[in-house]
Amino acid sequence: MSGAVGREPVFPTRQSLGLMKSKLKGAEIGHSLLKRKSEALTKRFREITRRIDEAKQKMGRVMQIAAFSLAEVSYAVGGDIGYQIQESAKQARFRVRAKQENVSGVFLPQFESYTEEGVNDFGLTGLGKGGQQIQRCRETYARAVETLVELASLQTAFLILDEVIKVVNRRVNAIEHVIIPRTENTIKYINSELDELDREEFYRLKKVSGKKQRDVAQADAEILAARQKAAEKEAENDAPATAAPSTEETEAPDVLGEQEDTDVIF
C-alpha cells in the first residue's frame, strides 16, 4: 500500500517535516468533517428515497383514478373534448414555484405547486352534457399533477444529492486512502532520512573521536618511548659520559621533528 501511494517530492529537512505534519493534521480534520457531511447527506438521501417510493406509489394510484375519471368524461360527453379543452385554456390555473433548500451546503431545488383560483378557462365546457364530469376530472388531474410536482422535486433532489454524495465520498476516500497515507509516508521518509543523517553524523563523530584517541594513544606511546630513550640515554651517559652529548644532540632534533608532525596532524 504505502509503496503504491508514494511520497511527496520534498527535501528531507526539518522545515518540510513541520509542513508535512501540519498538512497531515489538516487532512485528518478535513476527513472527519467531510465524513460527517457525507453521513448527513446520506441520511437525507435515504429519507428522500423513502419519500420517492411513497410518492411513486401515490402517483400510481392517483394517475389511475385520473385516467378513469377521463374515461367517465368520455362516457358522459360521448366524444372527444381534448381539442376544445386545449384551445380554450389560456392561462395556467395550476402553477409551480421553485424554492431552494440548503442541506449541509448543498442547494436542493424544491417545487411547490399552487392553484390560481381566479383562472377557470374551460368552465363552460360540456355545458350541454357532462360538464360536471369534466370539472371533476379536472380536479382529479390537478391532484395528479400535484403528486407529479412533488415527485419531480424529490427526484431532482435525489439526483443532485446523489451527485454530491459521490463527490463527497470521493473526497473522503481520497483523503483517507491517498492524501493521509502519502503524507504519513513522507513524514516517515523525512524522519528516516533525518535519522540516517543523525546516524551518519554520529558515526563520523565516532570515527573522528576514535582517530583522535588513536592519535593520542600513539602520541602518548611516543612520548613514553622518548622518555624511555631519554632515560636510557641518561643511564648510558651516566656510564660513558663522553658519548652522551653527541647522541643527545642527534636525538633532540628528531624528537622535535616528531612533535612538529603530530602538531600538523592535530
Binding site: G123, L124, L127, K129, G131
Partner: peptide
Amino acid sequence: DRRSINITLNSFGTEL
C-alpha cells in the same frame, strides 16, 4: 328538458 336541466346544473359556479 334534459338540456335545460344540464345547462343549469353545469353553469353553477361559472361566469354564465
